[in-house]
């Protein structure tokens, strides 16, 4: 076979390769390096083998943070996905309302994460926060600093406020791509609102929904900044999710080895779960 190769293409992708190397591969290798060694500073390293991994995998603390995080992600998905779909379905399709709605929806996404945390920290305070004050005056003894349930409620509410827009925007993009003829045909067939959703809108949205679920899962599973700002992981360890725990081990206790091993395990769990979501959803899609 005769084939001419054009090697110039490699020059084009070189900047990206370098960027990826510096931003991902090299830090990752450092982490791997730390995870199998023990260090006391001064650049002295001792081989530790799989010791840190065994320690992390058997640690009660890791298990509870993992379960906490899984529950959190599950609740987030269970609220944000249906809510996002409902909002997207009710957004206008044409006219002046479209840009207004889109801008309103995009607003929470534009706010820096630690600012979101700060907003909610203030918002939830009983003395000066609107939310806290309102709940208080309704007779609820609201206190996210001391009551774990209230802390969870606040963190979840904050995440829903912050991220449902993303689901809305993705679903909206899926919805507007459905040709008018489908709605007309459904009208002619006498389909109910539910049937239109079930047989036209949902099937046409399932690709963007897959992306929404994956993004929201990965993000919520890695959540750090907002709960750190609002609750700092407390009260007790009740809102200490994996990433907060990780930072505590690495920075707070300076246990670099276990922290590195934990990051790798953490990374693998995210990868595994994302893969599971992806295969389940695409297979379901193919079957239908």
């Amino acid at each position: 076979m005769e084939k001419t190769w054009n090697n110039k293409a490699w020059f084009m992708v070189l900047p990206v390769l370098l960027l990826v190397a510096f931003s991902a591969v090299i830090p990752l290798m450092t982490v791997v390096n730390y995870s199998v060694q023990d260090t006391f500073g001064n650049n002295q390293f001792f081989w530790a083998g799989t010791e840190w991994f065994t320690e992390i995998l058997q640690s009660e603390r890791f298990h509870s943070a993992l379960i906490r995080n899984l529950i959190f992600s599950f609740i987030i998905l269970a609220i944000e996905i249906p809510l996002g779909i409902i909002i997207a379905l009710n957004m206008p399709r044409k006219g002046l309302g479209v840009p207004v709605c889109l801008v309103l929806m995009a607003l929470p996404l534009l706010i820096p994460w630690n600012v979101v945390g700060t907003i909610w920290q203030v918002f939830g305070r009983v003395d000066i926060g609107l939310l806290g004050h309102t709940l208080e005056s309704l007779g609820i003894n609201y206190n996210y600093v001391q009551n774990p349930l209230h802390a969870w409620f606040t963190v979840i509410l904050m995440d829903v406020w912050h991220w449902t827009s993303l689901v809305v925007l993705l679903c909206y993009a899926g919805l507007v791509s459905i040709p008018d003829a489908f709605y007309q045909a459904a009208k002619i067939d006498g389909a109910s609102r539910w049937a239109v959703f079930r047989y036209i809108q949902l099937p046409k949205m399932n690709r963007v929904l897959l992306i929404a679920v994956l993004l929201r899962f990965m993000d919520s599973f890695m959540i750090y900044t907002e709960p750190f700002v609002v609750t700092g992981g407390g009260p007790g360890n009740s809102t200490t999710f994996l990433s907060i725990d990780l930072v505590k081990i690495a920075i707070g206790q300076f246990d670099l080895g276990p922290a590195a091993a934990m990051s790798i395990v953490y990374f693998l769990i995210i990868l595994l779960l994302s893969w599971v979501f992806y295969t389940v959803m695409t297979n379901y899609d193919a079957e239908r």
Binding site: P179, A181, F182, Q184, A185, K187, I188, G190, Y199
Partner: peptide, 16 residues
């Protein structure tokens, strides 16, 4: 449209 009891075939196939 529903109340008129008509059927319509469109330019691009509409199927569920």
């Amino acid at each position: 449209t529903q109340e008129r009891n008509i059927a319509q075939v469109f330019q691009f196939p509409v199927i569920y």
